[in-house]
């Protein structure tokens, strides 16, 4: 990816603090359209905070963040946050919240549920779905929003292998549809399968930022080597 291309996310020298604790330290990243970035690191490394920063859920204490507007992003949470409504109404709600007309919202919802293999469950109460189905619904909601930037925060944590596979398939299709994806994950296999670039974090700092193949074959930092050996 050429550095000259316009980045979709540009984070420059960002610090984020909460009280006296530093969450992110001097973080700088450029992410370009179409990239598939995996953010790796131990618990508390700052992966989720980085995603929340991109999604404007977290304000920088200093530095500069340029990212698509909320209407052009979607964020998938580790534990899907679903409304107490039907599967279908969860997707329709997200579209209407973005001022889509009801006709378009209904049509796009049908397409999103079909794409995520949830059409047969459209009228089920969302909170009675299994963990994997709930995450697929969160992805269907994101899919319907056709985001330029998809942020996924450990979307397959605690899911069974079959559900992991299904979620990855949907993520892959969204990438193929043109979305730029930033995926925070503990699953190294998943990062290998989905990402073309790896950002490795430790203690709120970016320790390595290289293409995925290089990271997994020849990590440079001691922290990354220890992480991969663990």
């Amino acid at each position: 990816m050429s550095d000259a291309a316009q980045p979709i996310v540009a984070i420059t020298n960002v610090d984020v603090s909460m009280g006296s604790s530093a969450i992110l330290n001097r973080v700088s990243i450029r992410i370009h359209p179409g990239e598939r970035v995996a953010v790796l690191g131990a618990n508390g490394a700052g992966k989720s905070s980085l995603l929340r920063l991109m999604n404007a859920l977290l304000d920088p204490s200093s530095g500069n963040v340029v990212a698509p507007a909320a209407a052009e992003q979607a964020l998938i949470f580790q534990r899907p946050v679903l409304l107490k409504r039907s599967v279908r109404d969860n997707v329709v709600f997200a579209l209407l919240a973005r001022r889509t007309t009801a006709d378009v919202a209904n049509r796009v919802t049908d397409e999103a549920l079909a794409a995520c293999e949830l059409a047969p469950l459209a009228h089920r109460y969302a909170r009675t779905l299994s963990g994997g189905e709930q995450q697929k619904l969160a992805l269907a909601r994101a899919w319907a929003l056709t985001p330029k930037l998809l942020l996924a925060d450990e979307p397959t944590a605690n899911l069974a292998p079959a559900a992991v596979h299904a979620v990855e398939m949907i993520l892959r299709r969204m990438c193929e549809g043109g979305a730029t994806i930033v995926l925070a994950t503990h699953n190294r296999g998943q990062a290998k399968r989905l990402a073309t670039r790896v950002i490795f974090m430790a203690d709120g700092e970016i320790v390595e930022d290289v293409d995925a193949k290089t990271f997994f074959t020849s990590p440079k930092s001691a922290a990354a080597i220890a992480y991969l050996d663990a």
């Binding site: 859920l57 909320a70 919240a97």
Partner: peptide, 22 residues
């Protein structure tokens, strides 16, 4: 719901209306 509403770009009053319904 705070993070979901934030990520969907809901205004404060949209969020409250949705909370009342939920």
């Amino acid at each position: 719901y705070r993070d979901l509403f934030g990520s969907l770009g809901l205004s404060r009053w949209q969020s409250v209306a949705t909370l009342l319904y939920e």
